[in-house]
Nucleic acid binder design. Structure first.
Lengths: 193, 193
DNA sequence: CGTCTCGTTGAGAGTTTTCAATGTAAGTGG
DNA sequence: CCACTTACATTGAAAACTCTCAACGAGACG
């Protein structure tokens, strides 16, 4: 279970053998079946989750009960309602499993201890968040300036695997579009070729 | 010049006196006049900038030469083309001053040295980025799920000061809307009251 | 003044959504 | 294994929202 995590960390910063022995003690593994919730809107988010295997989605629900997906998290991604986790607020995000998944959970006390006791992890998270910011910045630009079609094209060229793993109407939700619009975009692209 | 920076850091983590003596050596102060560029699209972004005083905007230019503002940075904010800064790519962002401003610049070698030599700064940036992620996540949700009007209302309730400091057409650009749309939204709100 | 920047308003166009119907594939219980 | 339900994708037509283009007005600044 921790192989994936160590791999991910060591892409960013070096770990000693002592680090590797210590780190697992801060986490609790958890298996999720398809459709099982990791977090539900209104709860307090008590942990960060590292996805060791599988695929989850995090999303908000609007007035009409519609899902708006903010993130797909597969192997190597972290997922959580950060605001709820960090500031002890009620979660506005729900998170559930699209595939059978295995996650590593770390709660707030362990997270804070880990950061202090294992400096490599402070560094890891700094780099992780730093890179995430780059990605989110880009997504924000795309979201504010691209047409529906450009958004769709950008997504499938950035993550070509995603269409194989995620049904189209969930991609639509992620892009802030309706399923119908995505269907029509695909059709337009098809007919041009 | 460093008062503002220290205040900002100490909101997040403690600094020793030695830290405070050392930190300024990593930075170079710079004054910017109104409309002066800090970074122009296509250049390589060589530094992170901490805004000690003033107000800058960072933005992309689309095909038609239109600005799309991604960030307003006033006192206490960091601004940069992160992707360019971190990965030595050409910047897609331009950054210029809306008001006469004073910024503290740190280049890549100093940034990396600072993180290693002053652990409090590794921690500071981890927390800074962590909080920024919370904000960006929220902005992404707003951008994908809210109507033009809801976006505008959300912005001015989150940052009530912003309308005093930033002309309306720049708020529009920040929200991914046209100036006309924002003008009409304001009118609608006015007429309801 | 004259110019430039900024905001407002109107009319028409374009894009995306909504609503509704249909088709198809996949999973489930009998 | 079939019948049934559910989930997912496609298509059309009309509605809604936001943008574009154009004109006008007000204020700031040299």
């Amino acid at each position: 279970m921790f192989t994936e995590l160590f791999r991910h960390i060591e892409e960013k910063t070096a770990l000693t053998e002592a680090d590797k022995r210590g780190i697992p003690n801060f986490f609790v593994p958890k298996r999720l079946r398809k459709k099982q919730f990791l977090l539900q809107e209104g709860e307090y988010c008590r942990s960060l989750a590292f996805v060791a295997r599988g695929l989850l989605k995090s999303y908000t629900l609007d007035g009409g009960g519609q899902e708006h997906i903010s993130l797909f998290a597969w192997e190597g991604w972290w997922v959580s309602d950060f605001k709820s986790f960090l500031f002890d607020e009620k979660a506005i995000l729900s998170i559930d499993a699209l595939e059978q998944s295995e996650v590593l959970l770390i709660d707030r006390p362990n997270y804070e201890r880990l950061l202090v006791e294992v400096p490599a992890m402070e560094r890891y998270f700094r780099i992780l968040y730093q890179n995430s910011l780059v990605t989110k910045d880009r997504r924000l630009i795309v979201s504010n300036t691209y047409s529906a079609r450009e958004k769709y094209v950008q997504l499938i060229t950035t993550y070509p695997q995603i269409a194989q793993r995620v049904p189209q109407h969930l991609l639509a939700s992620f892009l802030g579009l309706t399923p119908e619009t995505v269907s029509r975009i695909k059709k337009d692209i098809r007919e041009e070729a």
